[in-house]
Amino acid sequence: MEAFLTVDDLKVHFPTVDGVVKATDGLSFGLARGKTLGIVGESGSGKSVSSSAILGLHRGTNAVVSGEIRLDGNNLLALSDEEMRMRRGKEVAMIFQDPLSSLHPYFTIGNQIAEAYLVHHKVSKSAARTRVVEMLDRVGIPQADRRLNDYPHQFSGGMRQRAMIAMALINDPSLVIADEPTTALDVTVQAQILDLLQDLQRDFNTAIILITHDLGVVAEMADDVLVMYAGRAVEYGPCKEILTHPEMPYTWGLLSSAPDLTASTSGRLLPIPGTPPSLLNPPSGCPFHPRCTHRDKVPGDLCRTTLPELLPGHHREDHTKRCHLADPDTVFRTEILPNLAPELVEESS
């Protein structure tokens, strides 16, 4: 499987008066055409910052981006601002979280989507319009030729997200980054939008990076999963593998805090204790150790003093994790699995 996108040791650092905020600190992953990578983590774990870096959106700010992002063999970080701009929206496109605030309130839907097409294609306005109608049609907006004259506020939430998807896909990008595309939507609409993304991915053979904190979405959509914590990957591997044999306590925490639809309402969710760490002064050693309920199982002071390497776990070479636990499998099977929501387990097995 030839990787189409490879990210190698990506670092995004923001210098501030109080010190350097390491929003992303040495992130590496690969993604093939037509595949989906789910990036999971709490707010502030560096998911969005990392994906913005792929799009080059940190250019012109004071962020320091280093490492390597190879798309189809080209290192995006080595490109000039203008070369990167030409690729933005054309080869890499992004779908944002809140389609209402992400669309300009003063321009019509058609105008905004056509703009995305016209930046990268030297065609007439009417040709662009035809293409916009075609795309709106494709993403399932009824009477597209009329609705494109509407303003964003005249669309429903789901329709707006469909329009955003049409905008992102209008130039046939080979990579689409979807930053929590369903977070702002109703549950019923969420499923439609995810189905649409999968359909379009099949048709266009697009690689998708799906940023989410919803493991249900990941289970349904992703081929690979990358769990992020404090700017680093803490577990990375094939989706099925991660959901059935997670080896990192943070991933366990995410799984345990997912609601269970079939359990009685008196059953309680198990949230991860504590709050995400400050990226300005991350904890020493493993950044998750202050919140980790399993750190006592590691001998000595290892969790507090030493950052674990991202190494292959006990099952497969391509399943890597950052944890000092000697036998995570047993802990997972005995302590975590019995309390998990059955849908997640089923879906992933």
Binding site: L57, G89, S101, E115, A116, H120, M167
Partner: peptide
Amino acid sequence: TEDYIRTARAKGLQGRKVLFKHGLRA
């Protein structure tokens, strides 16, 4: 700093168009 400015940049729009069309309009 609005989200739609980020969208405009993500489209690949030229910097001055982002400022003069999307930014100033609002």
